[in-house]
Each structure stands twice: as structure tokens, then as C-alpha cells.
Amino acid sequence: MHKKEEEADNIDKQELWERRLKWIMPFMAITFAILIWEFLVRYYEVPHYLIPAPSKISATLWTDGPSLLKAMLFTIKLTFFSLLLAIIGGVLLGMLFALSRTIEMSLFPFAVILQVTPIIAIAPLILIYVNSTFAALLICAWIVAFFPILSNTAIGLRSADHNLRDLFSLYRATPWQRLRFLMLPSALPYFMAALKIAGGLSLIGAVVAEFVAGTAGQNTGLASRILESSFRFEIPRMFAALFLVSILGVSIFLITSLLSHIVLGHWHESEIKREK
């Protein structure tokens, strides 16, 4: 008995260590990379207008903090709303596709055309047709983010187990009950996978759209800061803005992953930790 307890204790400790390792390893690897970068820049005396050292970038982050954070807030707003619209549009249209093959066959080509045409090529047109710059940027980011949600939701809604579908027919389920209790839960893993992709894409869409728009002034995002900095050769500021874009991207990834874990963790194979 005593031995068994000891064994269980060891397993617990090992698991705890593994869980910590999941955070420690990436943290150490990144710290190491930054140190090497700092060292190489200093050792070879690379001028900061070519490649700034991490210390220089963090100093810039500190001094330019207020203006960069304001821009970051704008980008967050743009990304968030475009993702939200992509979810609403993608899920609604996905449901429509799942309900009717005819609608899917008619509308799917449009979705594909929107998806495969590079956003850089469509953005100037949108900027011409839409008065409000924010709305134009939103549309661009939305176009990029919406397709994976639409496509995955449509596939997910159709992926319900055919025996379960028979069971719902047997018990005379209404179309609404079928959607609510069978199709939506079946689609959830597909939707969560799409959300992880669309989250990143909406940020890419937001940044690219702003680049194309070439907007300047107070109410602009991180992409505008990067553009500005490149015109003025303020390379450390460019890196600082770039750093914030990356932080944003990583945060979106972590949030969507966490969301996926919360929603699917108790039942879906993709989120379940296997016993060893």
C-alpha cells in the first residue's frame, strides 16, 4: 500500500513537472534567442537602423509606448470586429449551406472567389467604394477570416453521426431540435478548429488592409506605425510595432486554444489528454 502511494506521488510529481516544462521550454528558448540576438548585434556592431538590438527595441517600446499602444488598440478593435463578423456570417451561411444543397451550390463559388483572390488585390477597390476607412478595413479583414469559418461550419454541421440522425428521425425531432441538439454540437470541433485559423487570419487581414489603405494620422493601427517608421527609417520603432503585432497574434492563438479546450475538453478526442 505504502509503495503504491509512493508510486502515485511520483506520477503526480512527474505530471506537474511536465506541465511546467510546457511553459519553461518555450520561455527559455525565446530568452536564449533574444540573448544571442543582443550579443551578435553588439559583437558585430550592427547599426540600429539595420537591425536594432532587443534592448534598443524595448527602450523604443517604452518611449513610444503611448502612441504604439493606441495603435495596438485600434488593431485589436479591427481584428476583433472582423472576427466577430466572420463568425456571425460564416456560421449563418454555413447553416444555410448545410440546410440546402441548392443554396450551397449557388453561393459557394462566390465564397471561393473571395477566398482565392488576394486581399491586396481587392482592397483598393473596397477603399474606393466604401466611404468610412474603418468600415473598408473591416470588410477586408472579414473577407480573409470568414472563409474557414464558413467552410468548416458547413462540413461540421453535415458530419453528425448517421445513426444519431436516424435516432432523431425515429423520435420525430423537429428541425430546430435536430439543429440544436445534434448538428451544432457535432459541428463544434470543426468550428473551433476554424476559429483558431480565422483568429490569426483576421489579424493578418487587419494588418494587410491597413498597409494597402496606407492610412495615416491619429486613428490608425499598428500597420500604419510600421509604414510610418519605414518611411522615416525608424527601424527600432518598426521592430517595436512588429513585436506588438506578434504579441497580438500569439494572444489570439492562446485565447482561441483556451476556448477550444474549455468547449471541447470534456469530450472531444482532440482536446483530451491520453493516459500513459
Partner: peptide
């Protein structure tokens, strides 16, 4: 006048607890 049907595999909803799976026919009513 319902009919009970048992499939070759258990055909349970993986996202629902045992309780909710058994509850399904009543919920649909």
C-alpha cells in the same frame, strides 16, 4: 406509440453525459 431502437454501436452523443444521453428521447418530446 414509440419504437425503441438500439444500433450496432452504442450511438451515444459524445458531448453529452450518460444522463443527457438517456434523457434525449424525452427531451425531444
Amino acid at each position: 406509440q414509440n419504437i425503441g431502437y438500439v444500433f450496432q454501436d452504442a450511438t451515444l452523443m459524445p458531448w453529452a453525459t450518460v444522463e443527457d444521453n438517456v434523457f434525449l428521447p424525452l427531451r425531444l418530446k
